[in-house]
Design a protein around this nucleic acid. Structure first.
Lengths: 249, 249
DNA sequence: GAAATAGTGTCTATCAGACATTATGGC
DNA sequence: GCCATAATGTCTGATAGACACTATTTC
């Protein structure tokens, strides 16, 4: 700290001669596990691989990070999400990084996986001119054989999603901005695969003070109409886990 | 699936001509946040940087992944941990991946960060012939200025450690294999920075059924000796989160 | 009014915090 | 016996599940 200028100048000199290319590097990709709820089921977005390896197989969307275009890993995830779905700012959270010499036949490749939640209506599929589909999630995976190690990755993502539902309110990102409590509860039930008690559920949600009652509005089918709500601070740009009601002591 | 052999042969041909080097890649490193408890305080292992950039600054131990030596990111973390501390199999868990064009003056570098828990007695510092020290953690960081973006990374790790203490028993990895309940409680108190009720603490630990009472043994200083325990399934090789008593419903 | 769904009230089991009490060692 | 610390017991308040009950709409 005392010889600041000296340090800086020698550091500048060092950097001038530093060549990152002289070290062998693994390849680096970003993959996405994009969830939505439709037809009373949790679905995940898959794309059909147009090229080798695993040509023709279904896989999680993603691809190589481009240091020229992506200023950060997060930015790369956002870019790929937009390319794939046309949706630019849903709930997006880093899941985990997988990397080894044998998970991809092309060689040593690491992938940082994100998972995203979005409203299925908002999605425009095939923006990336690749065949894409919403695959229903059964148990902790899908009924296809997935390329690479994407099956265990998907299982991790499903596990994380379920786990987070238990102590956060991220499921609101699977619904449109305005929704009713029965809709929200149904979303939880679909993902957690178990019925929830109405009274307990409402108490929990209300106590968290995360919902804003929309005055006057109602809607829905046959019985008594339900109150419409909106998620407070529905910050569409929020990137990292909003720590909603963490398991307090 | 029907034209399996055809697919495989054309894929083999594809891979033969595939050259990973033709794409520009970010550099890839693995860094470690190694925690221990000593002198009634949480400490983190720091190394003094011997080279530019940030020469002379304290930083988290870590470095470039070597695809020749490291079969996976996890393996790379284990290797660096051993090099740095001589300890080969403590509790080790992936924290998060940080990567951007501007977090390191050498260019676009991604780092996957792991955090480890170990018994401070077991550590042999400076195995990597670099100056190393145990720095006490104050709040969510240390009293040094850390190199790169290591300060916010450390803050994330401390946050994760505290959070996990609330619903797992990972703190046992900060103690020797045999320990007493007052020692374990003290460890929790040191990290969570708050006193815990003895009765509640013991109830919690006993209910989790994770401890094995060691027959006959006792030890300690001035008052009544405490019962010695051992962690059940003290699997020194366990790598990923053992989901101990997850916040059940 | 019947059916259907939304929303509320209440009882109870569970669990954590608080704190008093007992137990066991050294001196 | 006295002190220090370990270990246990008991009360209480908060909370979640279970479930009965009321409310509001369509037909």
């Amino acid at each position: 700290m005392t010889n600041n200028t000296i340090t800086e100048s020698s550091e500048a000199e060092f950097l001038q001669h530093y060549d990152t290319a002289c070290y062998e590097k693994p390849s680096f990709t970003v993959d996405l596990v994009i969830f939505t709820v439709r037809d009373e089921q949790l679905h995940v977005l898959l794309v059909k691989r147009a090229e080798h390896p695993f040509k023709g197989s279904w896989a999680l969307p993603g691809g190589f990070l481009d240091p020229q275009r992506d200023d950060s890993v997060d930015a790369c995830a956002v870019r790929k999400l937009t390319e794939e779905t046309g949706v630019s700012a849903p709930y997006l959270e880093q899941l985990k990084t997988y990397g080894s010499c044998d998970r991809d036949p092309r060689g040593w490749i690491a992938t940082t996986v994100y998972f995203a939640l979005m409203v299925s209506d908002a999605v425009r599929l095939g923006g990336n001119q690749a065949a894409a589909c919403w695959a229903p999630v059964r148990g902790d995976g899908v009924n296809f054989n997935l390329a690479f190690d994407h099956a265990p990755i998907l299982a991790d993502a499903v596990e994380r999603l379920r786990s987070k539902l238990e102590y956060t309110h991220i499921a609101v990102h699977l619904l449109p901005e305005e929704f009713t409590l029965p809709e929200l509860q149904r979303t939880y039930e679909i993902i957690l695969q178990q019925p929830l008690d109405k009274s307990s559920f409402r108490r929990r949600v209300v106590q968290a003070d995360m919902l804003e009652e929309l005055t006057g509005k109602q809607r829905d089918g046959s019985g008594r109409p339900a109150q419409l709500y909106r998620f407070r601070e529905y910050d569409r740009l929020t990137f990292f886990p909003r720590s909603i009601s963490r398991h307090a002591r």
